[in-house]
Every structure is written in structure tokens, then in C-alpha cells.
Computed example of a mutant assay.
Amino acid sequence: MRQMFKSPSVRHILLGLAGLGALIAARPAPTQTLAQALHDVAALKAQVQGFAGGAPARIDPRLVVPRCLAPALSWARADVVRADCASPAWTLYVPIDQPFALGSAPGALPQARARPAIWRGERVLVEAGGQGWAVSIEAEAERDADGNRIALKGPAGRRFTGRIEEGGKVVLAR
């Protein structure tokens, strides 16, 4: 038996186990319950629906994500809302059921879409500004515009969403 403890690999394993046991014993008791550490998925669904103008959001109520104080919402596509959390870092893509157009009955075929204002691959000038200042940058459309929103990629490869205003002017979406 003594011969076994003289082996360097066995001693390293025993020392590692002893250190692990000391770390576990010294760990403070958790201050949050599991429910406090998780994000309220029903509240997130309500936020997404509010962002989408009341259109029903499809989020599985069994979804488990870490708690986020203020998820940032943006359009990923015309029928998908992107929810981002900075800390802890996570991103969700939430499908949205498009509301029926006025005067259409459930089950009716959707109306044909008009030609997009901006095509995929097209280069556009995007403007961002405030009171007394403005900055513009050239970006590339990642896909065809959906309504007044467009997914863009800047010169450094960073992706963001633009809003198409009257006259085809593109501004940074907030």
C-alpha cells in the first residue's frame, strides 16, 4: 500500500482531490435562488410583443436563459426580433406572427410584397446623429430590405440595423 503513494501520478491525483475538496468547502453559499438567476420568459415575450407592435411572439415558455436587466431588442428580419443581453452575454431570435392586414380574414393569402427599397449587396450611406452633429458611414446591405428596416454590415465587419426613411435615406436604427 505504501508503495502506491510513492508513485508521482497517484500523489498528484490525491493532491488535486484534496485541493478540490478545499475549494468546495470554502465556497460561499449562493445568495440567489435558481428562480432569481433566470430571466422571466413571460416578461421577455411581453417586451418582444410590445416592440413588434402587438404582433404575437413565439417563445417556448420552457426556455431557460440567465437573468438580464435590460435586453436590447432590434429587428433581425421583418418577422424575427433579436433580443441581446450584454451581461451575461446571450442572444435570442424570436419569431413573430405577422398580424393580419386590415380587412383580411384569418387564413387569407398574404399580399404580394413590393420591391425592396434596397437590395442585398447594395452599398448605402448610413447616417447617425443628434442635436448639432451627424456622422455617416458606408455599409453593405446583408439582405433585401424588409419594409423600412435593413440589415447592414459596416466596413469593419460589424453588423447593425438601419431604418429607411422617406426619400431612401438610411439612418441608424435605435
Score class of each variant (00 low, 15 high):
Gly103Val: 00
Gly54Trp: 00
Val126Cys: 01
Val80Met: 00
Ala86Ser: 14
Thr91Leu: 10
Ala114Asp: 10
Asp60Gln: 07
Asp84Tyr: 03
Val64Gln: 15
Arg120Phe: 04
Ala76Gly: 06
Pro56Met: 02
Cys68Lys: 03
Pro71Trp: 00
Ala55Asp: 09
Leu44Cys: 09
Val94Gly: 01
Pro30Lys: 10
Cys85Gln: 04
Gly53Lys: 05
Gly107Trp: 06
Leu92Phe: 08
Arg67Glu: 11
Gln131Asn: 13
Ala43Trp: 08
Arg123Pro: 05
Gln131Leu: 11
Leu109Arg: 14
Val124His: 02
Asp79Arg: 05
Thr91Asn: 01
Val124Pro: 04
Gly53Tyr: 02
Asp84Glu: 15
Gly107Met: 03
Leu102Arg: 11
Ala35Cys: 07
Ala128Phe: 05
Trp133Ile: 03
Pro61Met: 06
Ala105Trp: 01
Gly103Tyr: 02
Gly107Arg: 06
Leu102His: 09
Ala55Gly: 12
Pro71Gln: 07
Ala89Thr: 08
Gly54Lys: 04
Trp75Lys: 04
Leu73Ile: 05
Val80Thr: 15
Phe51Lys: 00
Pro110Trp: 04
Asp40Glu: 10
Ile118Asn: 04
Gly130His: 02
Ile59Gln: 02
Val94His: 04
Glu122Ile: 07
Ala70Trp: 00
Leu69Trp: 07
Ala46Val: 06
Leu92Met: 15
Pro28Gln: 09
Pro99Gly: 02
Ala134Pro: 02
Leu92Ala: 15
Pro28Met: 06
Gly54Arg: 01
Pro28Asp: 12
Trp133Tyr: 15
Pro71Ala: 02
Ser104Val: 11
Ala43Thr: 15
Ala43Val: 15
Gln98His: 10
Ile96Tyr: 05
Arg27His: 11
Ala26Trp: 14
Arg123Glu: 13
Arg62His: 10
Thr31Arg: 12
Asp97Leu: 14
Ala134Glu: 08
Arg77Ala: 14
Gly132His: 11
Arg58Val: 13
Gly121Gln: 07
Trp90Tyr: 14
Val41Tyr: 03
Arg123Trp: 05
Pro61Ala: 13
Gly54Ser: 03
Asp60Thr: 09
Ala72Asp: 13
Val48Ser: 13
Gln131Ile: 10
Ala105Lys: 13
Gly54Tyr: 02
Gly107Asn: 06
Ala114Trp: 04
Val64His: 12
Pro99Gln: 10
Pro99Arg: 13
